[in-house]
């Protein structure tokens, strides 16, 4: 095309530079501040452009003096659980919804998609009560059906089942994993596959289960990896739910630990360099993940058609 695009390209260039600067500024400030010692920071009296030499020392203190390393491990386990459960449950369910003939399909699809409407943060108060005793619904059921009364007559004592998942990895992860956006994404993907796929597999004598594992799973690798990464990061960045579901510091993920670290020493000017080092420490794994995997994530979430 012979078209004069210099004007618009120059504008685009300026816009992108400003955008990148906006994104990078907090990160750069975090790095600069994390390179200062506490004394340097206090005497500097504010944000400066000077680079200190204490970055490694602050990181060493994060690793040795705070609970963040252990909490980083908690984050990894919780995020893996969240991503794993979300992908596995959604994959099998979507397989059923797309490849099975059932009048329940529509209802189940609606029920799962509706979870997107209400984020977990909204339900924290009551979810907490359920996780504190996951047997609660069972007790209600026994009571309503009269079975509780029956067993009370037989055994002679009232029995209530109890199982608390507070402060456990699984208890933190399960409620986060309820949001079922994956069903939507997988469904889009399955529907784009050739319609004759299951028929062909059946002719080869493959059971539905075999078809799912041997044919569908390898085909779905791209969206699976993308959603897994996406939910891993989603689990990592959760805050409100882990804050309440994991009360003891040993069970909390790193993001919660970082926020708590900000309030540990109210008696002196906060150790901002240590906090900034902590923020970088906590964000390192997901940022690297998204940096390395961004192409796959974008492609797998079907966000780009090119």
């Amino acid at each position: 095309m012979v078209e004069d695009t210099r004007g618009i390209d120059r504008t685009a260039f300026v816009i992108l530079v400003i955008g990148v600067a906006f994104i990078l500024t907090p990160i750069v400030i975090a790095f600069l501040t994390a390179s200062l010692s506490y004394e340097e920071f206090v005497s500097a009296g504010g944000i400066g452009l000077n680079v200190g030499s204490s970055f490694l020392d602050n990181m060493r203190r994060i690793v040795t003096e705070t609970r963040l390393p252990g909490q980083l491990w908690n984050s990894i386990v919780i995020s893996l659980l969240v991503a794993g459960i979300k992908c596995a449950f959604a994959f099998t369910a979507t397989f059923a919804l797309v490849f099975y003939e059932s009048r329940w399909n529509w209802i189940i699809f609606s029920l799962t998609i509706a979870t997107v409407m209400l984020p977990l943060e909204l339900l924290v108060i009551t979810t907490y009560q359920i996780v504190a005793n996951v047997a609660m619904p069972l007790n209600w059921l026994l009571q309503i059906t009269g079975l509780a009364w029956l067993s009370e007559q037989v055994v002679g004592a009232k029995h209530e089942y109890k199982l608390s998942l507070l402060d456990t990895y699984i208890g933190v992860a399960l409620p986060i994993a309820t949001s079922s956006t994956s069903v939507f994404i997988y469904r889009q993907f399955f529907l784009s596959l050739p319609k004759d796929l299951p028929r062909a597999a059946a002719m080869d004598g493959a059971s539905p289960f075999r078809f799912m594992i041997d044919i569908l799973l390898p085909l779905s690798w791209t969206p699976l990896v993308a959603t897994f990464m996406f939910w891993f990061i989603g689990g990592w960045t959760q805050y409100l739910w882990p804050l309440v579901a994991a009360a003891t510091p040993d069970a909390q993920p790193a993001v919660v630990g970082l926020a708590k670290l900000a309030n540990t020493e109210p008696d002196r000017i906060p150790d901002v360099p240590l906090l900034m080092a902590g923020a970088l420490f906590v964000s390192f794994i997901p940022v690297v993940l998204i940096g390395v995997m961004q192409r796959q994530i974008v492609r797998g979430l079907n966000l780009s058609e090119k």
Partner: peptide, 22 residues
């Protein structure tokens, strides 16, 4: 002795625990 990370968090957990007898 189990630390709860704060008076309020401890109380909230005690409430939930008491409701399920734990």
């Amino acid at each position: 002795c189990v630390g709860q990370g704060g008076y309020e968090a401890g109380m909230q957990k005690a409430i939930a625990a008491y409701r399920s007898a734990q």
